[in-house]
Design a protein around this nucleic acid. Structure first.
Lengths: 197, 197, 197, 197
DNA sequence: ACCTCCGGGACTGCCCGTTTAT
DNA sequence: ATAAACGGGCAGTCCCGGAGGT
């Protein structure tokens, strides 16, 4: 039965996620993860070939979750402006869920620019996301809810804006109401490209 | 004579900067830095008490340079909108100068959220920068070149936007014309708050 | 049914023999052997209590085979000198059969001087072999085909000679015609103790 | 001053020699060697890049010593037969000196057939030794102290004989008077090719 | 003051032979 | 007969201190 195996795996994942987020990937030892997960090193290396693999596993899970949520939010929206605002408002959940655990985002980012494997696993969904967002904007233009703007340009601006806010949120967790800023900023920007009627 | 000392220090800095940027702080060993700098480990520890100190040294230099450039650019501008555009256009130089060396930016960021010392050395200038930018926007409102917007909010949006673009530029060095995007995005945004005449 | 069991065992033996010979006992992991044999680790430890046991198994098989061949060769010979030459010529087969697999011989030897268990399993047949050889020489003296030499001394010399050649053959597999040397050397030596008529 | 360094090195060598001989190369840990030598791991890896390097160092020293002794013995002999007997008698010293430490010989041998680096460091002196011995025999023929035998063949036989005896001595340290056997065997063999007068 | 060699020892990721639960 | 778990052990690296020389 694979139940036991699955349980062990998720324990490792949970422990690794927490520790990587708190102390960083490099500073976190395999032994540490094992202890926190309550498994032996042998068990760890039975499930993962290397420390790096856990990281990649975490990354994949994270990316998959993000894309799933994104899809849901867009499907649940009536029109484009509403979808964008919903997504923007979603950062609130992100910040709330992660009691500092969101540092892992920075870790992903940080390693992606160094490690080719990580990079590949990150760049692909990132580009998918970018393309998808561009389509959304274009759709808004087509459906007449947005002004006839350059979809590619506008989508990139919006993504940059959101990314910038999130990045600052990671940097200064208790600095300010980043979720509010994210929402308001997107709202503010959106008003500029909304089709007046 | 302190000349030799200075030279050694700067050699260490140069080597450390390059290696930290290329391989990351953790992955870069003191021995590696020493070899690249052409100095002995003893010499290294004569100049710096710890590996961390080199990092802080680098960070300080970087922050100081950034602030200096920022000051120059603002002093050289006639009015607020022009200043903002000048700064936005400056990202071009940033991306050009750093042939990947700009990864160090991510390294600073990454460690700031972990290491209290680094955090302090980063957060202070960051907040200064934020405040300064808010003042700039306010000045624009006061001088009548900008609409009567909420300076605090607008400044944060602009900073987030810029940060988001730069972050993506670090992530995907050859991905796209980030410098152009930075300029255009700010320009686009600026137009929305420019006082029409 | 024990058929399957037997098959598994011999698969393990074959794999272990090859790997021990190629990479050495220590450098060969149990997992490696299992993979090469196409069995699971559980299966491995079902058949053998420990890695060491496989080694001993191999050793026993090898010794038994050697003694059997020896017995055959001596039975098939008309007189003592012929028997000795036959045995000496047999090294040819040894070198041919073992395309490097003969390294296992060195492994046996090497571990025998360290591990008491291995030593015991090696020393007994070795002494049997020595004694048997001494008897052969004595028989040669008695039957009048050899000069009245000291059988104990001569047998040891012959064994040493053969052993030295084989050892070099292991050391330098493609160095020279070791099988030829073995034959010629024994032949040469034999002529010195052959009863002239 | 390099005195300290030299002392540390030789301490490491001494400890490694003893442990490698007693327990084998693989079974001996670096930490073990360090403790026995009374040095830290840092110190160990300051002097040697890897565990393997110590082994090679030991091997070189051993080979050099062997060749030196060989040279001395040959220089000190009046004619060829005497030289050969002197060398043969030298095995006595070998067995005496090494209170089991001679196991290292088997270790060298064992690894030489596996590790290309070790092999190269072993094969070269071995071939030198073989060639030199051939010359010696030839010289004996030329000077008239030996019968007109095939020098190449005879030298190989003698080397094999000696090697076989030594190998058995390693295998069964307390088995028999190997040094005596070595001497007597060579003596016996020599008589067969001595020029009668 | 500046620099070098040598040394220290804790720590790392990973692999090992083996056992338990299924 | 298997997959999962075990935990101690491995070689090698880390950052750093200290005695001594220039």
């Amino acid at each position: 039965m694979q139940e036991r195996s699955q349980k062990t795996r998720s324990q490792i994942q949970r422990a690794a996620l927490k520790l990587f987020a708190k102390n960083g990937y490099d500073a976190t030892g395999v032994a540490e993860v094992c202890k926190a997960a309550g498994v032996s090193k042998g068990s760890f290396y039975h499930h993962y070939d290397a420390k790096q693999d856990v990281f990649l596993d975490l990354l994949e899970t994270w990316v998959a979750g993000l894309e799933a949520e994104l899809g849901e939010m867009m499907a649940a929206s009536k029109n484009v402006p509403e979808a964008i605002l919903t997504i923007a408002g979603h950062t609130k959940k992100i910040f709330r869920d992660s009691d500092g655990t969101f540092h892992i985002f920075l870790e992903f980012w940080s390693r992606a620019s160094r490690d080719p494997v990580v990079w590949k696993k990150t760049i692909a969904p990132y580009e998918r996301f970018l393309a998808l967002f561009e389509q959304v904007i274009q759709k808004g233009v087509d459906e007449g809810s947005l002004k006839p703007v350059d979809a590619r340009f506008v989508s990139r601006v919006l993504v940059s804006l959101a990314l910038g806010v999130v990045a600052q949120g990671v940097f200064m967790p208790k600095g300010g109401a980043w979720d509010v800023l994210a929402r308001d900023a997107v709202d503010f920007f959106l008003r500029g490209i909304l089709k007046e009627r």
